[in-house]
Amino acid sequence: MHLLVMALFAAVVATVMAVIDSERHDVRAKALYGVKVFAAFIFVGLVIGWVMYFIPL
């Protein structure tokens, strides 16, 4: 559930960031940028989740 919601959140942000990106103008470059942003969100989310596992809170 948490991973699914995180993925949906990442998809929303990545899509909007790709659409409004001002440096890439063709659809393919924008789509690739969106995929990279999405992957970065998921990767960083997993890394933070893994690090927090060891923090006793």
Binding site: V5, F9, V16
Partner: peptide, 24 residues
């Protein structure tokens, strides 16, 4: 509710993203 934080954060972020979309 277990998904309260997710939902609330998403609502904030969607609003902020729409500011960016409006500037675009």
């Amino acid at each position: 509710n277990p998904t309260y934080e997710y939902g609330t954060s998403l609502l904030h972020v969607v609003g902020l993203l729409n500011y960016l979309a409006a500037l675009d």
